[in-house]
């Protein structure tokens, strides 16, 4: 009775991930602030000084739209917590860059969960027949206060999904989803503040685990699915440990989650985190595979999806750059270059 399922099933018709070119090894952050060691992840992806959520969203969206083969989008939704403007939509700039004007455009914010929210909303719009197809983007240039634990993981990147009516070109059908929320202040950023704050270990048990477990268990109960039914599972990745821990608790194996587990290489891309993980899975999934996707956003909530991979994936594969190719293309920078890029230096 809590399951969300559109009357007409919607499907992913195209997708595109974006990981910026620059990588900061966490040993660099540790060198500057602790004198040595490293963070939980090996590296994090860092947007260049001329990149922001708008530019990265455009890049991912162009790939997704090209793969979909569509030329008209009824909705453009950008889920992000790093809007370049407090007031002025990110989504209209993305829509303009895509040449889309007769479209519903909106920015969504829900800490790290805004990307999957966009997928939920577009699925509903398509499923109800209000629009033929729409674009859901999860993208962030996450910032951590210099020296804060968050700085090791807060990263940039995300992915875009064109969702439309299922049919021949379907890559994966969005079969159903759940969402579970509560008022939980584990992480927040007040208006006009540059960096977020967090309540240390509070972000684990009562926040991340509680909400994801509720969303996924509800999905299992109401669909009758078991972990073993899924070829892949993707969880939100604030660090390398949490997704592994929540997967174990829910009964998934390392084999099911390793493909979509990118945090060790790129960090936590916030609204982009689980959407990029899904892109990495789609890069190698086969028709007939079942995928579980579960996001988490502080504040707090989780969206869980059940996706069924379709034949369209074979035909469309290779039409946008793979997550793997983006991981390989990166170049390492030092802490001073990172400070310059992310405006941590003031002249």
């Amino acid at each position: 009775m809590y399951l969300m399922q559109s009357k007409n099933r919607a499907a992913i018709l195209g997708y595109g991930a974006y990981i910026p070119y620059y990588r900061l090894p966490t040993t660099e952050i540790a060198r500057v602030w602790r004198g040595g060691g490293s963070g939980p992840n090996v590296e994090k992806a860092v947007a260049s000084m001329d990149e922001d959520t708008v530019t990265m969203a455009i890049e991912a969206a162009r790939q997704a739209v090209a793969m979909s083969g569509l030329d008209s989008l009824g909705a453009v939704f950008v889920g992000t917590e790093s809007k370049p403007y407090a007031v002025k939509p990110t989504s209209t700039i993305v829509a303009q860059a895509l040449g889309q004007h007769h479209t519903l455009a909106a920015d969504l914010e829900f800490a790290c969960k805004a990307g999957t929210e966009a997928i939920q909303v577009i699925t509903g719009l398509v499923g109800s027949g209000m629009i033929q197809a729409g674009l859901a983007i999860g993208m962030d240039t996450a910032q951590g206060r210099p020296g804060d634990d968050l700085e090791y993981t807060a990263a940039s990147g995300g992915a875009a999904y064109v969702i439309g009516n299922k049919g021949e070109g379907a890559i994966a059908v969005i079969d159903c989803s759940t969402s579970f929320v509560s008022d939980t202040g584990d992480f927040w950023r007040r208006a006009h503040e540059k960096y977020p704050r967090h309540l240390s270990r509070f972000t684990g048990e009562p926040a991340y685990f509680y909400h994801i477990e509720n969303a996924v268990r509800t999905l299992f109960e109401e669909t009758g699915h078991k972990p073993g039914d899924f070829t892949y599972a993707v969880f939100h990745q604030p660090n390398p440990r949490f997704p592994v821990e929540v997967a174990t608790r829910l009964g998934f194996t390392m084999d099911q989650i390793k493909t979509g587990l990118l945090n060790p290489m790129i960090g936590n891309t916030y609204s982009g985190s689980s959407p990029i993980g899904l892109a990495a899975v789609l890069d190698e999934a086969k028709p007939g595979d079942k995928i579980l996707l579960a996001s988490f956003g502080s504040g707090a909530g989780s969206d869980a999806f059940c996706l069924d991979v379709k034949d369209g994936i074979t035909k469309k594969r290779g039409k946008s750059p793979t997550v793997k190719s983006m991981l390989q293309r990166g170049t390492r920078i030092d802490y001073s270059t990172y400070s310059k890029f992310r405006d941590k230096l003031h002249k």
């Binding site: 260049s48 001329d50 922001d52 708008v54 530019t55 890049e59």
Partner: peptide, 14 residues
């Protein structure tokens, strides 16, 4: 690609 070309200070347009 598309990037920030020019930023009009702290409060202007991007």
């Amino acid at each position: 690609t598309v990037r920030r070309a020019k930023v009009e200070g702290e409060s202007g347009q991007i």
